[in-house]
Each structure stands twice: as structure tokens, then as C-alpha cells.
């Protein structure tokens, strides 16, 4: 009997702790003195994915460069909150962190794609702080492929949309898929008839391409460069607006199809993030992208620097939303 009462007491204690902890929560977040001493404690950088992906890498490298260059003196711990390409994180974030100046997160086109697919939140529900880098997709064939230019591929697809097997590192509606379809649409091809073979990530696509299991890969430039140097593949076009420095490859536009696809990455803050916090991050990110340390990172990662301040970034997101939702509508992928 005594045993049981001890137990009940312990569980009761845990319950009391639970209640008091809930009661304490709000007081922790109230800030005195409107941001004069911001930040006076570590700012959490959230990568809404597991470790090792593009978001995680961007977040960790940003945190690293900020620390190394002493631009920001407080700690910038990176936290991974995984789930639903960022959806899980956003749901929690919009519920618990409105007005929170001490959490920012990284994102990229999926925040727009999720919305186009029917997710209830969009970039408008959070505070775009700045866009910092872009990656571009490339269209690649094996070195012994009969296709020498993007035009030859598009012409073959016009004849018979199933004649060229296109592989990409994402599901239909993902970035690699949209990147190629945006170009194919401009070429006047019936894009829903194209044989698109989806793979899990750029590594698998390159494997399939090198094994001649697909004819053309749509994948990030960084995935391809090592193969290009070895001469195992040929890059037909890149999806950027201008040629990429150090790459002798035409853009899709130059190849005659008026399409670009920008895989941007940027940072966002909470809904109703205080203006001082937003400005602090906007300014520091602007300073950071100019440091040699960051430029080295960009070079190693084969990224393209594309800093956009909050205002430009917000406008850009509006335009991209249009581009993506139009494309997805045409592909029948919207809800």
C-alpha cells in the first residue's frame, strides 16, 4: 500500500511540475527595453529538415561564418526540426513563436511549393529577412549521348514526348522536376506526357545517368561538376538567367527557351518579428555575404551569391509564387 502511495505522489509531483512549467512559459519570452541590447542570448537557427541536407548545410555554414567573422557575438545554435519538407516546423512555429526575435529559419522554394500544393501557410505568414544564395539546376546527358544541345533534346521530345527518359532528384512537383518542365513548357511540349523518372536526391540521379538508365538528368550544378571534369557527362544547359562563372555552358534562355529556375535559399523570422530583430539580421546577413569567409563557402559549395534584402526578397517571393503555381497548375499538381 505504501509503495502505491509513493508512486502516486511521484506522478502527482510530475503533474505539478507540468502545470507550473506551462504557467512559466510566457514570462520567459517577454522582452524588456525594445531590443536595445538585442541579441542578449543565443539566437536559434532552425533547419526544418534532418541533418546533412541543403537547409542544414546553409544554416550551419551561416552560423559558422557569423561566429568566425565575429559579426554576431552570441551563439547561433542550429536546430533540426524535421517533417513534411518544413511543414511540421512551420505549424509549430506559427502557433508558439509569434513575435519571437530569437528564432530564425532557413528555407527555399519548398515553402512556395507546399503552399501551391495546398498547405495552409505561406511565406506571407512569416517574416522574410533576406535571400542569400541561389543554386541552379542543370540538364546533363552522358558523354556518349547522341544529344549535343538542349534544342536536340527538345526537338526529340516534340516528336515524341516519351522518347527521352528524363530523371531528376525529386518527386513530380519537386524542384528538379519543375526546373525541366519550365523549360519544356516554353518549348511547346506536352509536359504531362514526358517520361519523368523521379529519384531520391541528386546522387541517385547521377548514378542512374552514368549507368545509362536515364537519358537526361535534371539536377543541381554542384552534383555534376566532378563528373564534368572527368568528362563522363555533358552539361547541355543551366537554368540561371546569366551564365555561371567558370562554366562554359549556355543558359536555357540562350538555348532558345525563355525559362529560368532559381533554387534560392534565404532566412525567415517569426510572424510579427520585432522590427529591430529583423533589421539586425538583415544588416548582418548583408555584411556576412561580403566577407571572404562566406565567399569561400559559396565557392566550395558551387552556389551563386544572390543577396536580396527583406524588401527585395519579399517581392521576389511574390514573383516566384506566381511562376511556381502556374507551372504546377499546368502539371495538375495543385490542389
Amino acid at each position: 500500500m505504501k509503495k502505491k502511495s509513493g508512486l502516486i505522489a511521484l506522478i502527482g509531483l510530475m503533474l505539478i511540475l507540468l502545470v507550473t512549467a506551462c504557467g512559466q512559459q510566457p514570462t520567459k519570452q517577454t522582452q524588456a527595453n525594445e531590443g536595445a541590447d538585442y541579441p542578449n542570448k543565443p539566437v536559434k537557427i532552425v533547419a526544418p529538415s534532418g541533418t546533412g541536407g541543403g537547409w542544414d548545410t546553409t544554416a550551419r555554414l551561416m552560423s559558422k561564418v557569423m561566429g568566425e567573422t565575429k559579426l554576431i557575438k552570441v551563439g547561433l545554435p542550429v536546430e533540426n526540426i524535421e517533417g513534411g519538407s518544413g511543414k511540421v516546423f512551420l505549424e509549430g512555429f506559427l502557433k508558439n513563436n509569434v513575435g519571437d526575435p530569437y528564432t530564425i529559419f532557413v528555407n527555399s522554394p519548398p515553402i512556395l511549393i507546399n503552399t501551391a500544393q495546398g498547405f495552409k501557410y505561406s511565406y506571407k505568414d512569416v517574416t522574410p529577412i533576406a535571400g542569400i544564395i541561389s543554386e541552379y539546376d542543370s540538364f546533363v546527358v552522358p558523354a556518349n549521348s547522341k544529344y549535343k544541345t538542349l534544342k536536340e533534346v527538345m526537338d526529340a521530345l516534340k516528336q515524341n514526348p516519351a522518347s527521352v527518359k528524363i530523371g531528376g532528384g525529386s518527386a513530380p512537383g519537386g524542384m528538379d522536376h519543375l526546373a525541366f518542365m519550365a523549360a519544356a513548357k516554353k518549348a511547346g511540349i506536352e509536359i504531362t506526357k514526358i517520361n519523368y523518372v523521379p529519384f531520391q536526391g541528386g546522387g541517385q540521379v547521377m548514378t542512374a545517368l552514368l549507368g545509362n538508365n536515364i537519358d537526361l538528368a535534371s539536377t543541381g550544378i554542384s552534383e555534376v561538376q566532378g563528373q564534368m571534369q572527368a568528362g563522363t557527362v555533358r552539361m547541355l544547359a543551366v537554368t540561371s538567367a546569366q551564365r555561371i562563372e567558370g562554366l562554359d555552358v549556355p543558359t536555357v534562355k540562350e538555348a532558345g527557351y525563355d525559362a529560368t529556375f532559381d533554387i534560392w535559399r534565404g532566412f525567415f523570422g517569426a510572424k510579427d518579428m520585432p522590427a529591430y530583430a529583423k533589421k539586425y539580421w538583415e544588416d548582418n546577413l548583408a555584411k556576412m555575404v561580403k566577407t571572404p569567409e562566406w565567399q569561400q563557402v559559396v565557392k566550395n559549395q558551387k552556389w551563386t551569391s544572390s543577396y536580396r534584402n527583406s524588401e527585395e526578397f519579399t517581392k521576389f517571393l511574390g514573383e516566384q509564387t506566381q511562376v511556381i503555381s502556374n507551372l504546377m497548375k499546368e502539371l495538375g499538381l495543385t490542389k
Binding site: 548545410t57 563522363t232 566550395n300 559549395q301
Partner: peptide
């Protein structure tokens, strides 16, 4: 490898 400025590929 990429973070360290190495381009992985057949020429590694």
C-alpha cells in the same frame, strides 16, 4: 568533401 572545397568525382 564539398564543404572542404573538393569536387567529388571520378577524378578524385
Amino acid at each position: 568533401l564539398m564543404i572542404h572545397g573538393i569536387t567529388p568525382g571520378p577524378l578524385l
